[in-house]
Design a binder for these strands. Structure first.
Lengths: 244, 244
DNA sequence: CGCGAACTTGATATTTGTCAACTAAGGTGG
DNA sequence: CCACCTTAGTTGACAAATATCAAGTTCGCG
C-alpha cells in the first residue's frame, strides 16, 4: 500500500508511526514531472521547495572549467534533492533528470512543521542527510582506491541495494538507465575505458547488461570482487536475499 | 576573546547571539587531550559524546581489505568529529589524531538541549554538517577530475581557507602537519608520485614547504592553477586578503 | 654512533586516456 | 519505405599519467 518510496526509505532511518506516514504522504502530494535530460536545479539556485524523487533517476553533477563533468550522486526514488539548501542558501552543484522523473515539491514551511512537531520525522530527515554523506565518503574511497573494474562493480552493488530498499530491484537484476559516458563521468573513467571495463565484468561472468537492465550472475561473487561492504548505506534489513 | 574555534566557525553558518556563544562555550568546557597517532574513534564505535576538535589536526579514514588506506577528511580546530553518530548509530569509519589534539567532549544530552531550545544553534550545527557534505562532494570532483598537481594545489587552497576561518593561517602560509604518505592517502596518489607532485608545485614557483609550513607564493596564482572556487566551503567573508 | 622515519630519485611496469575509425540501433523527413 | 542522421557502443593503436621497485639521502634522536 504505502508505495511512496520516500516513506519506504525513511522507515530504514526511524520508526515512523502510521500518523507520521500519513503526514509524509500528504506532504508529498504535490508533484510535477520532469523530462529526460531536463535540469531540475541549477548551481546558484535557492529553491523555494524541498524536492524528492518519487520515480525515475536524477543526478547531482558539477562541470569543471576544463569541461570535465563529474557526477557526484544519483537520486533514485525516495531520495531528497535539496534538503540542505534552506540552510546553505545556495546550490553549489546542479541536479538533472536522467530519465523522466516524478518529483514531489514540499514547501519549506511544510518541512519545518513536519520536523518541529514530529521528532521521528525530524530524525528520519536527519538520517537521510547523514546517509548521503556516508555514501559520499564511500564514493571517495571507491574513486581513489579501487581499479576500474572493482570500482564499477562496487557502484553496481550499491545501486542494487539502494533500489532494493525501495522495492525497485529484483533479487539479481535492476534497471540502470545510464549511458557508458555517464558511468564514466561517475567513476572518473574515460568513455573508452568505461566500455572496456563493462566488457571486463561481462567476460568475468559477473554481470550481463541488455536493454539497460543489469543482471548480476551471483550477488555474493560480485560483492567479493568489489570488496563491497554495505554497512555504509545504513539500510539494516533491506530485503536482498543474499544479505539474509 | 572568543578564541574557541568551534564558535568562530559556527558564526559563518548562523547568527549567534552573545548568549548562544556563552552556551556553546560552556558546553565545550570539558576537554581531553589525544596524542599524535592515537585513535579517537574507531569504526563500529557508538560514542557517548559528540566531539569537537579544539586544537590540532585529526583525520577520518578507512582501510580497505587490500591494505590501501583512504583519508576522507581532515578535522581542524572547530570541526565536529561525530555529530552524526547519534542518528546513524555506528561509525562507518575511524578518526585518528594526526598531531596532539585537544578535544571537547559534549554529551548528547547537552547537544539536544542546545538544539532544542536554541534555533540558531540548531541551525549552526545543521550548517556544519552540510558543509562537511559539500566538502566531500568537492573532494570527489578533485579526486576524479583533476591531475595530480592541480589536485594537490586544490587541497592546499582548501586547507588554507579553512584554517583562515578559525584564525590559524597567515595570509599566505599555514602549518600542514602531514607526511607525504598521508597526503598520498588523501589525494589517492602513491607516495612516490606525491613526492614528485610536491616538487612540481615547488618548481612552478607556486608553493614552498619547509618544516611543515606551506608558503603560498601568490594565492591567486595557486587558485587559478587549481581552478579553485571557494563557494563550496560556504564561508562567506573569511578574512583571506586575496578574496577581498 | 647508529637507527628509523620521511623524503628523494631513477628505471621500469601498469593503468588509463586519447585519437580515430567503425558498427548498430532508432528516429525523421522526403 | 528508404536515405540519412544522430547517439551509443565498440575496437585498435598509441600516448600520457601514475604505480611499483629498488636504492639512496637526510635528519633528528636515543
Amino acid at each position: 500500500m504505502a508505495s511512496n518510496p520516500m516513506i519506504l526509505k525513511l522507515c530504514y532511518g526511524a520508526v515512523l508511526s502510521d500518523a507520521d506516514r500519513e503526514r509524509l504522504e500528504a506532504a508529498s502530494k504535490v508533484t510535477r514531472s520532469v523530462e529526460r535530460d531536463e535540469s531540475l536545479i541549477s548551481e546558484g539556485d535557492n529553491p523555494e521547495n524541498v524536492r524528492v524523487v518519487l520515480s525515475g533517476w536524477a543526478c547531482r553533477h558539477k562541470t569543471l572549467a576544463s569541461g570535465r563533468r563529474s557526477i557526484m550522486a544519483y537520486l533514485v526514488p525516495g531520495d531528497f534533492c535539496d534538503l540542505h539548501v534552506a540552510v546553505l542558501g545556495r546550490m553549489d552543484h546542479s541536479i538533472s533528470a536522467i530519465t523522466r522523473c516524478t518529483i514531489a515539491e514540499i514547501p519549506h514551511a511544510t518541512v519545518n512543521s513536519l520536523t518541529n512537531g514530529h521528532p521521528s520525522i525530524a530524525r528520519a530527515f536527519w538520517w537521510a542527510t547523514l546517509v548521503d554523506e556516508s555514501v559520499l565518503r564511500e564514493w571517495l574511497v571507491n574513486l581513489g582506491q579501487r581499479p576500474a573494474a572493482q570500482r564499477l562493480a562496487h557502484f553496481l552493488c550499491e545501486m542494487h541495494i539502494r533500489l532494493s530498499a525501495v522495492e525497485l530491484a529484483a533479487p539479481n537484476s535492476f534497471t540502470l538507465p545510464l549511458s557508458q559516458e555517464k558511468l564514466g563521468d561517475t567513476l572518473a573513467l574515460s568513455t573508452v575505458h568505461m566500455n572496456r571495463t563493462v566488457r571486463e565484468l561481462r567476460e568475468r561472468g559477473l554481470i550481463s547488461i541488455e536493454e539497460k537492465t543489469v543482471t548480476i550472475a551471483d550477488v555474493c561473487r560480485l560483492r567479493d570482487f568489489a570488496n563491497f561492504e554495505p554497512e555504509y548505506l545504513h539500510l539494516k534489513g533491506v530485503r536482498v536475499p543474499q544479505i539474509a
